[in-house]
């Protein structure tokens, strides 16, 4: 039941379809909602810094995944 509720919420938020979306849903969403992601606009350095900090904090993200995640975040939630 709880998992269903969570799923409904995530669908409602609609991260743009693109390479990296599934990684964000599976990795980042372990510890925090995606609302804090979609509510921010950061430059590339800003997103890099955040993702690296999350890895330091234990986010299970490989070096290859890191690149895809930063790319996705900057493309869709970059400070333009």
């Amino acid at each position: 039941m709880m998992a269903m509720a969570s799923f409904t919420y995530l669908q409602g938020f609609s991260l743009p379809e693109d390479t990296g979306k599934d990684l964000i849903l599976s990795r980042c969403n372990i510890c925090h909602g995606i609302d804090i992601v979609v509510n921010q606009r950061l430059n590339r350095l800003g997103w890099e810094e955040i993702v690296d900090r999350m890895i330091r904090w234990g986010a299970p993200i490989t070096p290859q995944e890191r690149i895809l995640i930063i790319e996705y975040l900057y493309k869709h939630f970059g400070e333009k």
Partner: peptide, 27 residues
């Protein structure tokens, strides 16, 4: 997840389901 850290694979569906179940986002 410690083991996964070394691989580039996506989390298996089963684990992903567990993760979602472990800490749902309150509505």
């Amino acid at each position: 997840s410690g083991a996964l850290f070394l691989s580039t694979e996506i989390l298996p569906d089963k684990l992903l389901a567990q993760v979602k179940e472990s800490a749902p986002e309150p509505q």
